[in-house]
Amino acid sequence: MSGSLAQRASRAQASARQDGRRSTTDSPLAIGIAMVLLIIAAVYFLVPIYWLVVNATKTQPDLIGSNGFLFSTWNLGRNLSDLFSRSDGIFLRWGLNSLLYAGLGAAVGTFLSAMAGYALAKYSFRGREALFTLILGGVLVPATALALPLFLIFARVGLTDTYWSVFLPSVVSPFGVYLSRIFAAASVPDELIDAARLDGASEWRVFVTVGLRLMSPALVTIFLFQFVVIWNNFLLPLIMLRSSELWPITYGLFSWQSQVSRDPSLQILTVTGSLVSVIPLIVTFLALQRYWQAGLTAGSDR
């Protein structure tokens, strides 16, 4: 249990690489077939993204008239300036909204999950397992089944069509608590907690200086996954928000796409906007690779 999960995962990969599992049993033919299959799969996964990149650079007539897999007249600069100036820069607003919902929501949510998971792993109290089961039950409840009743409740207290209506429910992540508990149990030794208490630290200080510190690589993973879940959430904003200035980017792009028959120029803006909106996500994922890979290891580690 020494070292962070990220380290464990990369060590496992390294050892897998060194031990040469494929060694004697694989014939060149088998390796060739495997390679072909892997490449075909890569093409399948990358083609739509390639299409998006190519077509975001086109003019509206070329989007329809030219071959979708080949570049034609370069119009990316123009598309970008149109994208950001449309309706007084509403696209940027949507982007910032998404960042606020997903970034702040995931940060707060991760912190709440970390506290709850830490307590469930490191304190024993009556009803602990029952509480954990209740929270785990939350993992199995489809978020969409919650959205409608949430709307009705929020309508009663006048919260619909506000930032809060999307932000508040997003903060709760039962799966984050589940992962936090696993991470806390695996990476925070009881001896260290005891030692900190002996030094006279309060329970809160023990959590912050020992628990949070040791759990931090795992918390990045939880943050990342909750970020994606909130960023992707479509139903909740669709139900809660009427005012376009509160929409997240996904809702905004969807609304443009729905209006294409009335205003065809929105089509190329939807394509360019889609590309612009996925770039931050892809960059984040590439930059934080070792964290999500480690997180997936832990997720299957029941």
Binding site: F254, S274, S277, F285
Partner: peptide
């Protein structure tokens, strides 16, 4: 590494945008 990232990339793309992209295709 390349294959792993290539296969995982679609997960980073929101469902709405994935559907929009495929709708074009």
């Amino acid at each position: 590494r390349f294959f792993r990232i290539a296969y995982f990339l679609p997960y980073a793309i929101p469902g709405v945008i994935a559907a929009l992209m495929w709708a074009f295709l």
